[in-house]
Nucleic acid binder design. Structure first.
Lengths: 146, 146
DNA sequence: TATTGTTATACTCTATAACTATA
DNA sequence: TATAGTTATAGAGTATAACAATA
């Protein structure tokens, strides 16, 4: 098998796996009324020390700012986050976790874990670590190192 | 970091990587007028000995049959595949590569390779092999082994 | 009654472009 | 002019449900 072929196969494998991951997540998150993308945003919000701006969220999620608006809209409608205007700069809006959002996080974490666990079941602990390292290596933007 | 957390992180890493892969593929395939999903279907068609049924394609792509209809519609409109009724069973339709489709395959392969190459650049050959093996392990449906 | 493919419909995710309000 | 966020719009990808034709 030539290089192009095997490289393409890796891409196929990744896409197929992610499709399954998406499906599993959706299934597990559905009872909570939250989509995978919203869950991801909620996690980012919860992991930040201070409330993040919309732009920050877009950067961390690696999406365009417009996409964040929709996700925050959804989470806000469920009362899980709250938009807070920044007094220092009236252009910016910061996104805070609500008490309800904090409550939801644990259930979300369980759901996420169950979903990922379904897919990652075939891998042992050391293999997961290996996979994590490989993915981390890929996370580094190659265009930045030039 | 607990197990749930690290499992969730793997999921995040996968999703983030695939988002980038999707974007890169889209970019490289755009000049050819073909979407990543269409490209995938075209590859499956090209790798099969005999023309596959719509249902077979759905299975191999791991999507619902309805999704295949749209993809084949698109490829057919570009003249890359052709729907052929099966004489033996008038319910089934088989999808064949056209001469034009065969021509497009090489360009597609190059585009796909360039896209994947962008993302996989940080990995050496042995790391790619490692990643391929891990993904292959995950491809095996765990629900079948029970 | 089960299978094959389709029409109809809808939702998630993401993108670009143009606009508003600040700075 | 540049930045932060939004409205408006679009398109890719996928799903479910109802249906027609065939087996």
């Amino acid at each position: 098998m030539d290089v192009a072929e095997s490289t393409g196969n890796l891409a196929d494998q990744l896409l197929r796996l992610t499709r399954r991951l998406h499906r599993a997540q959706k299934q597990y998150l559905q009872p909570l009324g939250i989509t995978p993308a919203m869950s991801r945003l909620l996690r980012v919000v919860s992991h930040s020390e201070e409330p993040l701006r919309m732009v920050d969220l877009a950067q961390r999620l690696d999406v365009v700012p417009r996409a964040v608006t929709t996700l925050v809209d959804g989470l806000e409608s469920f009362g899980l986050v709250r938009r807070v205007p920044d007094p220092a700069n009236r252009r910016v809006i910061r996104v805070e976790l609500t008490a309800q959002g904090r409550d939801a996080l644990q259930r979300l974490r369980d759901a996420r874990r169950a979903a990922a666990e379904d897919l990652l079941a075939p891998l042992g602990p050391e293999q997961r670590e290996q996979l994590g390292e490989l993915l981390a290596a890929l996370d580094r933007d190659p265009s930045r190192s030039c």
